[in-house]
Design a protein around this nucleic acid. Structure first.
Lengths: 227, 227
DNA sequence: ACAAAAGTGTTTTCTCTACACCCATGA
DNA sequence: TCATGGGTGTAGAGAAAACACTTTTGT
């Protein structure tokens, strides 16, 4: 196909917006840029797509390399392709967002020795267009959490309704009525109550719940009114 | 930056899922593939991203080249990047969807001499992964039309509520109650009634409406319950 | 005793839906 | 006159929101 030959070829990257939840806050994993340009600013985890892999596979590889985690929840957000988005050389980046459990995150990797979790509502200056990437990813997460229990990817396998509500409040940056939230969530019929109770977060103790098998990815009617 | 040098470079394409509305049906503009492989199947309008343009700009250029139209509504859907998605050579494609008014579409262009509008619910076999692209684009259009009057991009500048309802029925492939649809649309406060009436579609005659200035792109509460 | 979260119930408001009904008019 | 779409009104179902209230237990 001579046809193809005449067209330019580009470096294609993946950038990962990695969400985690800790201490009642929704956080983002960033690492500091150690060299110019933009030295001192912070950056999303990224890497270049290779010959034998799709963007999705590349994102999983980057996740594995930088967090030590496999099988992470991952979804494509959008491609960023402005010719000037990186000053040194043109790179087209396909942005993904990932949800991980911070408690499972392995800190002792060389790549992430200097990485840091930042609260989404208080991010440091980011390089290039990474701030737009983070914005778009958060909107996608809000959309996702509005129709699935995507949030449960961010919590331990057993969690209380208080923890789940706090997570949703962190994702949507707003409060939810405790009673109404509980009733809504339970009415969706995707949570299973365990016999175990949590006694650390309250005096009375709250039952633990887990997501029912095969319900984690299920599209629900609507959990949160978004927009 | 020596760092960049070692990574592979890829052909990057844009493919456009071009929606139009005609004779009460939502349609897609396709053109027949004249050579192997996949000769005889139909294809989305596409082209390669050039050095000096973003994917969005490339899509606008493809739109202009193939339909003769500028300033078309265009939105990115997703990047398709599987290494095997095109058999002859690896191409990463960034899919966009476009909304155009078929009445403004110029047929007499060499590129589109053989192009054809196909009803979305009765598409011919498409090349490669173009059927998945079309599927995803339709879902995005449904989402878009659920929170904005995106649909109005597909209609003439003045339209009746019957025409608008028929369009929404075509987009969502379902019926809407005439009375309820009217009330819902009018309650959104984005339509302006004109003094003019349409007398061709009904005996009584129906008022024309237009989208109020600055309201076309506005995010609305929710027009259609999607999902 | 008190605070703080767990958990349940009630009331009010709002939206969606179905459907009845009259109007205007061309065939 | 009859069929067809234009346009308005209303009753009922169901969901969301606001909020009262009771339970439990560590401090």
């Amino acid at each position: 196909m001579e046809y193809y030959k005449q067209h330019p070829r580009f470096l294609v990257a993946v950038d990962c917006v990695i969400f985690g939840y800790e201490a009642g806050e929704l956080k983002l994993l960033l690492y500091p840029r150690a060299f110019e340009p933009e030295k001192g600013k912070w950056s999303l985890m990224g890497g270049f797509v290779q010959e034998n892999e799709s963007a999705c596979e590349a994102a999983h590889r980057v996740l594995a390399e930088t967090t030590g985690m496999n099988g992470v929840f991952l979804e494509q957000v959008s491609a960023f392709s402005s010719p000037e988005r990186e000053p040194s050389e043109r790179v087209i980046s396909i942005v993904h967002f990932a949800l991980i459990r911070i408690d499972r995150f392995k800190k002792n990797r060389p790549v992430t020795a200097s990485a840091k979790w930042w609260p989404v509502n208080n991010l440091p200056p980011l390089i290039f267009d990474h701030d737009q990437m983070a914005d778009q990813a958060l909107k996608r997460l809000q959309q996702k959490a509005g129709t699935t229990l995507a949030g449960s990817e961010l919590l331990p396998s057993k969690f209380t309704l208080l923890q789940l509500r706090n997570l949703y409040e962190a994702i949507y940056q707003r409060g939810f009525d405790p009673g109404n939230f509980r009733k809504k969530m339970l009415s969706l019929n995707v949570l299973e109550r365990l016999d175990q109770k949590n006694s650390t977060d309250s005096k009375k103790g709250a039952f633990y719940y887990k997501v029912k098998p095969n319900k984690a990815e299920k599209e629900l009617e609507r959990i949160v009114k978004y927009l």
